[in-house]
Design a protein around this nucleic acid. Structure first.
Lengths: 139, 139
DNA sequence: CCCTATAAATAAGA
DNA sequence: TCTTATTTATAGGG
């Protein structure tokens, strides 16, 4: 024994224990996220779809994924929305694909949605300041 | 005046005030949801994509939407995951489309992913009970 | 899984 | 937009 004593088994246990609590954190927080998503749907009347890839790349989803097709139906708009409101961080799944998609976008077909999104951004900037106005009605 | 006194203007203001606070609720909660999604990504190492349609059908997204393609790449798997882990509530956008998609699924191409998901479900059932095990490592 | 102390989100008021 | 009382989420331990 003495100064060594760091058997293989001890190291293994330490590593796995850390991973285990990381997994617990992921599980609890994913559950919390999905719960909040459901609340927004029921309390505020929104429609939400979520895809979560776990640290081990296991997929979890909530909501009808065809909601994504509503955005997906116009790839350019989809990419634009994603880039406009995104923090830019994606994880390690497919980090550069939105750039690739951007080059193949159908600009003509997306005109209306893009205009909608410009309007959205303007409203987003205005919203906080006029939130109490009695004549501001649509979000 | 008397017992009437409910002028047109008064009714308008009341209606818009209610809608306004509903919008405030939606805005605050959407912000909170996106914040939590970012936390799970940074703290737990997950990858998340979200699409939210506001009560007025305005789209908000977070994350690289191509994550959905990773699921979307196999429609059957996508639908299966959605149905397996979903609460079943979708809002009012396209409530039945996942059933439609199910009929067009490419079963052969999805074999591996479907197997993965069966395994996932088994693990999901087991996970809570063995979460403290030193040899249970992957979520 | 449950419990609970602490931290975070949020609804309402101004 | 800011503040705050209250509700809700979560980390850590059992």
């Amino acid at each position: 024994m003495g100064s060594g004593g760091t058997g293989r088994r001890k190291i293994e246990i330490k590593k796995i224990t850390k991973q285990s609590s990381k997994n617990v954190t992921f599980s609890k927080r994913r559950k919390g996220l999905f719960k909040k998503a459901e609340e927004i749907q029921s309390k505020a009347g929104a429609s939400i779809s979520i895809v979560v890839f776990s640290p081990a790349n296991r997929p979890y989803t909530q909501g009808d994924l065809s909601l994504f097709d509503a955005v997906d139906g116009c790839s350019a708009a989809k990419t634009a929305v994603s880039r406009g409101y995104d923090a830019g961080r994606v994880g390690d799944a497919t980090p550069t694909s939105s750039l690739i998609r951007l080059e193949n976008m159908d600009v003509e077909g997306c005109r209306n949605l893009n205009e909608l999104m410009s309007l959205e951004k303007e409203l987003e900037d205005l919203r906080e300041g006029v939130i109490h106005s009695e004549f501001f009605a649509s979000i």
